[in-house]
């Protein structure tokens, strides 16, 4: 046991300064690109219109790098509805409706000591019965429609729905978004969104 304690202490503080400070390390291509120079661009996700990128559609592929460069801003979430009730304690249920696995890992990363969402009073639950928010990742696959509805119905009021990642938000290049099945209250763009972006979304959604 001593071994672990010493090891833990020797690593000192790992936890990010976010949300008070700025993110320490952000993957460039997980943020929304901005136009930096002229060039020909063919966006495979059809996300570029009028020289700007539609955050919901961007799949972070970097195929626009001739004219665009990563914006570097992690605070790009769109909050349609927030609820201050969750300010002190916020329990989240994750549901994977057809993701590639990357969003799952980025959401899961929030529990590691670096992002440590528990310090902010945010927790994952293992049943929708205890959940305040439903965090949906992935495109809407046919077989998951029913479980998604059931999970939403099993949650107590008040409740929020997060669409995390380009797939859940707009369907990306792989399929349909979840919007036909559930109305998302918070939109978290990115492919996958940076853990900072997801954390930012969770924090903003309880500022009601």
């Amino acid at each position: 046991m001593k071994n672990w304690a010493v090891r833990g202490l020797s690593r000192r503080r790992m936890t990010t300064a976010f949300p008070r400070g700025e993110p320490e390390s952000v993957a460039p291509w997980s943020t929304i690109p901005v136009k930096v120079r002229e060039g020909t661009v063919l966006c495979p996700a059809d996300a570029i219109h009028d020289n700007s990128v539609i955050a919901e559609k961007c799949i972070s592929c970097g195929r626009c790098s001739d004219a665009f460069a990563p914006g570097g801003n992690v605070r790009t979430v769109l909050v349609r509805r927030a609820d201050g009730v969750f300010r002190k304690s916020f329990n989240i249920f994750i549901i994977d409706t057809g993701s590639c696995g990357a969003c799952n890992l980025e959401v899961k990363a929030l529990t590691n000591p670096i992002y440590d969402m528990h310090r902010l009073g945010i927790f994952f639950t293992s049943t929708p019965r205890h959940a305040d928010a439903l965090l949906v990742v992935g495109v809407m696959s046919e077989n998951m429609k029913e479980p998604l509805k059931k999970a939403y119905e099993a949650m107590p009021y008040p409740k929020l729905v997060f669409a995390v990642g380009a797939c859940a938000v707009s369907g990306g290049i792989l399929g349909k978004s979840i919007e036909e099945t559930l109305n998302a209250d918070v939109i978290v763009p990115g492919c996958p969104p940076s853990p900072f972006t997801i954390l930012d979304a969770l924090l903003k959604s309880r500022e009601g």
Binding site: S25, W29, C61, R63, C191, P192
Partner: peptide, 12 residues
């Protein structure tokens, strides 16, 4: 992400 621009090598 520092060396390749994306945490999952997307688009590389």
């Amino acid at each position: 992400s520092e060396y390749f621009g994306h945490r999952f090598f997307y688009g590389l």
